[in-house]
Amino acid sequence: MLTIRKYVMAESLSQAYDLYQNKNNTIIGGMLWLKMQDRTVDTAIDLSNLGLNTIEETENTYEIGAMVTLRDLELHSGLNTLTGNAFTACVKPIVGVQFRNLATVGGSVYGRYGFSDLLTLLLAMNADVVLYKNGIVNIHDFVKMPYTRDIVVKVIVSKNNGNVYYTSFRNTKTDFPVLTCCVYHHDNHTGACIGARPGKALDFVMNEEETVTDYANRIHESCPFGSNMRSSASYRGKLCRNLTEYAIRQLQKGESSC
């Protein structure tokens, strides 16, 4: 059972950051994971009033605040037009509307969960993560960083990187994914980000001379997969091969993710 001694609605990021330096304190995102933990939190820090719940469009980017919910992503017309509905495809299977109205982008990104649908998409889009102290970090670097007591403020996706196709496989429609797969074509190269391996998503760039089938086979052979309750490693490998090949062909045909 989760015990929280004190709750603070942060008035500024610096206040939140200072409080967060105490390792008995924590930042609450959607609270969906935190709630299930059996732990005692000294101070729960809420970022809800810091204006981080907006998606702002600039000339070349969308800036997605950390407190934007997964449901906001699902419904955002700009992001979905840009990505062929990849945002919708990515978050729609996550439990239910009531859940996605709570789960936040900041919580999903900060957690760097292996099963994360969103992380897979953001990696494929080569997004930037804006941290309060550390500033802008490319998401590929961010996923490798240790868990520090910095705060995810927003995520920035480039309008140039919207050529993506998202797919995932789940045992039931609203379960965690057995595998996530997001393929992309931007900056003159094609690639695939594979998540829920069950580890964190990895990025595989396609070689120019490779056929789609060869590429899919190569990822199948080189990508590390593990087993858990939802699937064996070997099944994940086959799924990865099949979904990658399928997704690349869909991307090449200009199909929308959903």
Binding site: Y7, M31, A44, D46, V97, Q98, F99, L102
Partner: peptide, 22 residues
């Protein structure tokens, strides 16, 4: 499960996963 669904400012949310303070 969705059994605890309530509307928060009109939006459906899980009341089991929300701090009252929030």
């Amino acid at each position: 499960c969705g059994l605890c669904t309530v509307l928060l400012d009109g939006k459906p949310v899980l009341s089991c996963s929300l701090l009252t303070c929030r």
